[in-house]
């Protein structure tokens, strides 16, 4: 019995000692991209032709909104998807789910959160949400709008985990429709409605 206890104690002691490994003295790569005598760099680079699994994202413009894949540069200027009624309706539902709290239903940057934000502006440097009808955003390339959704801008954080790339483009298409809706010319108004417009102040 005594021997068993001693053996048990010794085993437990050894197990505990096994955890006493000083991680600080283990070899580390000071710089993963430093030159290596064996390979080009200390950290192995991917072999040429390696196939990514799950996230190929080969179409750079579609997935980043930029021709070069760089944030803030080389925005693509044309929507990479075809604008259809379904796409616009999908964009509308996504826009109303994610964008209206700040940007408002009509895109003037006056969503309900802007009320709260302005109220608490005493202790917080508050930047009002952008209005899509400002000349800067009306003339902005679609890639810039896409990147704002994908990577965030200003106080707006990234929605990449919530909105899929296809839906981001649908939202961008819907924003274009919003801009058109709030910046139309009289020629776009049907003749029967134009008479009513003339009667308005």
């Amino acid at each position: 019995m005594r021997t068993i206890k001693m053996l048990l104690g010794a085993t437990l002691g050894l197990l505990l000692l096994a955890g006493c490994n000083n991680l600080a003295v283990q070899p580390k790569l000071a710089n993963p991209y430093a030159e290596s005598p064996n390979f080009d760099t200390a950290a192995r680079l991917l072999d040429e032709g390696a196939v990514p699994v799950g996230h190929l994202n080969e179409d750079t413009g579609f997935y980043t909104g930029s021709n070069d894949g760089i944030i803030g540069e080389g925005y693509i200027t044309e929507l990479p998807i075809e604008i259809t009624q379904d796409v616009l309706l999908r964009g509308q539902s996504q826009y109303e789910a994610f964008c209206t709290p700040c940007h408002g239903y009509a895109g003037y940057g006056n969503g309900v959160l802007s009320l709260e934000g302005l109220r608490s502006s005493d202790s917080y440097e508050y930047n009002a949400p952008a209005s899509y009808h400002d000349a800067e955003l009306v003339n902005a390339p679609v890639g810039r709008l896409y990147q704002a959704i994908a990577y965030g801008v200003g106080n707006m954080y990234s929605y990449s985990s919530r909105v899929q790339p296809e839906d981001r483009w649908a939202i961008v298409a819907y924003i274009r429709a919003l801009q058109l809706s709030q910046n139309a010319s009289v020629a776009d108004v049907p003749a029967e409605v134009q008479a009513e417009l003339d009667g308005m102040e």
Partner: peptide
């Protein structure tokens, strides 16, 4: 400036 707002559904058609 002769700028008007139109229903967003009408804007859909214009955009398409």
């Amino acid at each position: 400036a002769q700028i008007v707002h139109i229903p967003v559904t009408a804007a859909f058609d214009l955009l398409i």
